[in-house]
Write a protein that binds this DNA or RNA. Structure first.
Length: 865
RNA sequence: GCGGAUGUGGCGGAAUUGGUAGACGCGCUAUCUUGAGGGGGUAGUAACUUAGGUUGUGGGGGUUCAAGUCCCCCCAUCCGCACCA
């Protein structure tokens, strides 16, 4: 085979991709005789075109998938489309097209981009969640959950735009105002469907312990999110009943502070608050004021705490004293019972509230460690011994909590309880572009699941979105249906799109199945996913819902595993430099390729100028690639210019996968230069002619050095790919190997033989990252079998042996010399050499040697003073 | 506010188990090469220095023969907070 002089990625990549397609190289077939490996990337939302985050994500899974394939595994690496969602509706309104058409156009373009990157994807399993063949089974599954009592309807708060008369997503609320209308958003309570994820809270926490290949921080975030806490439910009787309400329930994790309760606070939506508001206009006005705040927890936590005395009192269950009852804007109706007991002496939020509204503060805990805490200026939140608590004085936290809980229990005023921060999963969305919720609303007010033989409840796709309202809500006839001769109404809300992304990992195992949601045989062959890769921004919600859904699938008998994802890798964001100029105080963001950076003679950045005008611009820092900062780099431009292999190589080399990745045009050029160097090196090697076979036992020291480097590199890259997922250091190791090969450029037979071994292995090691160039060079080196069928190289341990090692000599922890010795030198010999080293002697002169520490094979430290 | 992470040369990063800080790459400097390419090769590149060394991994303390790595406090930046996906 002859070789082109110049590395031409376009033709090489076209050829390799054609070969993989023609040979169906990456189509996965279930084969129980082979060990399987299921490698999954979080599937993309078809937003229009691929961004660098996608490129990074799918390059990572492709490298892992190709590596595992070379380990002899039966690899499944599928791809699909998270195709329902809000942006399609926004685009539809803007361009007056149907969300379906917009979505399908995007899918077809983005698919061609993924193919041009040479990802080894099994396209025969492609799926899009907006297809009825997919969401039919999601609807079917929901009706199963409905029958099991795992779903229910209740009222819940949404952001309501009173002008557009529509529900807004949190991101559509900007500074408390609707993004389109610009008017103040209101909180509105509407009926919505919920799935009982809280029934699975304990499993979701406990099973985290078995996920030993998940990042610790993700597991911690999930544990904190579920927020299991032990405490006590306390009943406060009302001094006088309000309508049918005679008492209040509160949950506390600090029953030891119960004697320090000086008031209670209710949520604005608490039934008692609402009842009182009917007859008290100032309470009603207060509730009304609180309606114009955002529902997000972050806003709840940071907003000003407001409250109002409701004018009623409750009876303290232990002391019998009366305590006032307030309403507060910071109490969540969705969490716990919608009422909290306030202990301002020992809770910072209660403390600030009490100071603001001049409510009494009582200290009931003394801390041994914080004796100096002054209750006049701040709350004492540490646990300690009780004081001002009558018969509980002097008890520690545990004893006091137990005693108080049992005293409450004996008078039916409380009991031990477990509480979760996790709330049930609200799956109703008042939008069009989603899977219709398969429920019939009955004339008498009840609900019934749509019968299985009527599924799927089809979402009409031939619609025009000239108004903001959902077409299936606007069309008053769409919801009309009949069941057993009675008129019923089809639910017009659609599912949260997290529903689709919660089970696609399972559907990929049998996407063509039209008779059932899953084929348990195929599903259980592939599941659980061996390696899941996606952004850290999904660490909580998506991953928690998918874990939950997998347990629901298990309980329906569809899969037999407890967890969907055995190993998880969260990749970091892709960043780029940003620049802006100011115009009348407004920032105008410039694309980085419109800017020239001036540097000094050491390469330090001095200033940035707009290339076109020569005017100086400001740096906006290195931030996430985004439209708003105009600093996005289109992957296509780089692929067209340098080829897919260069983009893949740079993406994997510039940073380890979990860290942020800074885009750098110079860095991309460096990656391209490396591939060109590899190309040239193989060419020159092949031109030097065929060599004699490698004669391992008759190598000179120089040849041995190259062989050692080759096998050290195999060892390192195998560990980096297989265990550490540090692709950057693996690539660096191959670069080092090639730097070494460049020094072995003579034409002696054994040089050629060891160089051939080095180059062949370099191509194998690099092939998961840069598969196209390796596909070609593998043949150039004369190999007849296909690279995709090649087996990962094995380390020859005999090649790793060293005859000399370098030991570092330290005096008092500082390096004072180095010495080359035999690897099997004794401790005594080494000590003798060290203390006699001239430079070491200089630093121990006049001091007494206290001790000598020897770390075999590494260093010797002489402690002297 | 709460929860989670990150911080190392001019820049991206390496140092895997507490054991030589700065691998590999970018940039820069010098130099060689008629070199058609977003060229190639070689050497140098943490700072300071009286050229012996000294200092140095966001800041401040601590443990240790030895700390980028372990512990405590602080600062800055980023991610998530339940209707963006």
């Amino acid at each position: 085979m002859t070789l082109d002089k110049n590395y031409d990625p376009a033709s090489i990549e076209r050829e390799a991709q054609q070969f993989w397609t023609d040979n169906k190289t990456f189509e996965a077939i279930e084969d129980p005789s082979k060990e399987k490996f299921y490698c999954l990337a979080m599937f993309p939302y078809p937003s229009g075109k691929l961004h660098m985050g996608h490129v990074r994500n799918y390059t990572i899974t492709d490298v892992i998938a190709r590596f595992q394939r070379m380990q002899g595994k039966n690899v499944l690496h599928p791809m699909g489309w998270d195709a329902f969602g809000l942006p399609a509706e926004n685009a539809a309104v803007e361009n007056n097209t149907a969300p379906s058409k917009w979505t399908h156009d995007n899918i077809s373009y983005m698919k061609s981009q993924l193919q041009s990157l040479g990802f080894g994807i099994d396209w025969s399993r492609e799926l899009a969640t907006c297809e009825p063949t997919y969401y039919k089974w999601e609807q079917w599954f929901f009706t199963k959950l409905f029958e099991k009592g795992l779903v229910y309807k209740k009222t819940s708060a949404v952001n309501w735009d009173p002008v557009d008369e529509t529900v807004l997503a949190n991101e559509q609320v900007i500074d408390g105002k609707g993004w389109r209308s610009g008017v103040q958003v209101e909180i509105k309570e509407i009926d919505q469907w919920f799935i009982r994820i809280t029934d699975y809270a304990d499993q979701l926490i406990d099973d985290l312990d078995g996920l030993d290949q998940w990042p610790e921080q993700v597991k911690t975030m999930q544990r904190n999110w579920i927020g299991k806490s032990q405490g006590v439910n306390v009943v406060f009787d009302l001094s006088e009943s309000i309508s049918e309400y005679s008492h209040l329930n509160v949950f506390t994790t600090r029953p030891d502070t119960l004697m320090g309760v000086t008031y209670l606070t209710l949520a604005t939506q608490h039934p008692i608050t609402l009842k009182l508001a009917e007859k008290n206009s100032s309470i009603a006005k207060f509730i009304d004021q609180c309606q114009s705040q955002k529902t997000s927890e972050a806003d709840m936590a940071t907003m000003e705490k407001l409250g109002m005395d409701l004018g009623i009192t409750a009876v303290h269950p232990l002391s019998g004293e009366t305590v006032p009852v307030w309403v507060g804007n910071y109490v969540l109706m969705d969490y716990g019972s919608g009422a909290v007991m306030a202990v301002p002496g020992h809770d910072q939020r209660d403390y600030e509230f009490a100071k603001k509204y001049v409510l009494p503060i009582t200290q009931v805990v003394l801390s041994a460690e914080h004796k100096d805490t002054n209750i006049e200026t701040e709350a004492l939140t540490e646990k300690g011994t009780l004081t001002n608590s009558g018969k509980y004085n002097g008890l520690d936290f545990n004893t006091a909590a137990e005693k108080i809980a049992s005293d409450l229990e004996s008078t039916q005023h409380g009991s031990m309880a477990t509480n979760y921060r996790l709330r049930d999963w609200g799956v109703s969305r008042q939008r069009y572009w989603g899977a219709p919720i398969p429920i019939y609303n009955l004339a008498n007010g009840g609900e019934i699941a749509v019968p299985a033989d009527r599924l799927p409840v089809l979402l009409p796709t031939d619609v025009s979105m000239n108004s903001i309202q959902s077409p299936i809500k606007a069309d008053k006839s769409w919801c009309k249906a009949e069941l057993n001769g009675e008129p019923v109404e089809q639910e017009t809300d659609t599912f949260d799109t997290f529903m689709e992304s919660s089970w696609y990992h399972a559907r990929f195992t049998c996407p063509d199945l039209d008779s059932a949601m899953l084929d348990p045989v195929r599903a259980n062959y592939w599941l659980p996913v061996d390696q899941y890769v996606g952004g850290i921004e999904h660490a909580i919600l998506h991953l928690l819902y998918a874990r939950f859904f997998h347990k629901l699938l298990r309980d329906e008998g569809l899969v037999n595993s407890d967890e969907p994802f055995k190993s998880l890798l969260c990749q970091g964001m892709v960043l780029a430099e940003s620049f802006y100029k100011e115009n009348d105080g407004r920032k105008i963001w410039l694309s980085p390729d419109e800017v020239t950076v001036k540097r000094d003679e050491k390469g330090r950045a001095l200033s940035a100028l707009e290339t076109k005008t020569g005017l100086s611009v400001f740096s906006g820092g290195i931030t996430k690639m985004s439209k708003s900062k105009n600093n996005g780099v289109d992957p296509q431009t780089t692929i067209d210019r340098f080829g897919a292999d260069t983009v893949r190589l740079f993406t994997m080399f510039a940073a380890p996968p979990e860290q942020t990745l800074e885009w750098s045009d110079e860095g991309v050029l460096g990656a391209h230069r490396f591939l060109r160097k590899l190309w040239k090196m193989v060419q020159e090697h092949v031109e030097s002619g065929q060599s004699e076979p490698l004669d391992k036992d008759n190598l000179n020291p120089k040849h041995k050095d190259l062989r050692r480097k080759t096998h050290e590199t195999i060892l390192k890259v195998s560990d980096d790919f297989g265990r550490r997922n540090t692709f950057n250091t693996a690539i660096a190791a191959v670069m080092e190997l090639l730097n070494e090969v460049a020094k072995h450029n003579d034409h002696s037979e054994q040089t050629k033989a060891t160089r051939h071994e080095a180059l062949e292995n370099a191509i194998l090691l690099l092939s998961p990252v840069a598969p196209h160039i390796c596909h070609k060079l593998w043949k150039v080196l004369g190999r007849s079998e296909e690279l995709t069928e090649a087996i990962w190289p094995q380390v020859d341990d005999s090649a790793l042996a060293r005859s000399i090692i370098t030991i570092v000599l330290q005096v008092n922890g500082k390096v004072r010399g180095k010495v080359d010795v035999s690897p099997d030198i004794s401790k005594q010999e080494l000590e003798t050499i060290a203390v006699n080293d001239s430079n070491v002697k200089r630093f121990i002169a006049g001091n007494v040697i206290q001790k000598i520490i020897v770390i075999p094979g590494k260093l010797i430290n002489i402690v002297a003073n």
